[in-house]
Amino acid sequence: MAKAAVNGKRLIVTPDRCTSCRTCELACSFRHGAPNRPAVPRLRTFDFGGPPKNVILTCFQCDDAACVRVCPVTALVRSGETGAIVVLERRCIGCGSCAVACPFGQIEMDPVKLLARKCDLCGGDPACAAFCPTKALEYR
């Protein structure tokens, strides 16, 4: 779905391999949180009866993204490097329109910062893929 990025890589999800161990969620939490204060993960696994029935859900980095269209201050922009739609936190005004507009529920409002948060592909080194023990998530 996402446009080809400069680095030519994509986050590839193979749900059949997911054991729903939730290591990806933990890795995401630690990567985006402060030391000793993990953040809410930006991707989620869903256990629909164990492998191979599990689902991993993260931002699809849509081409014509509703979140980008709805943002009144252009705080959601596509990274040329990774192709990810990233939140420019200093520009976000916390109106929450993107969170309601995303059809897949991939943007939430940070209740403390009152800013939008979503998957940013960790700037080109997604922690979820790096730590997935079964290669259900790969970045290549």
Binding site: P15, R44, F46, F48, K53, V55, L57, A99, V100, C102, P103, F104, G105, Q106, I107, E108
Partner: peptide, 14 residues
């Protein structure tokens, strides 16, 4: 809400 949409999307995919 995002949470409902996530669940719905996951179910669709599953």
């Amino acid at each position: 809400c995002p949470e409902s949409k996530r669940r719905e999307t996951a179910e669709t995919i599953a």
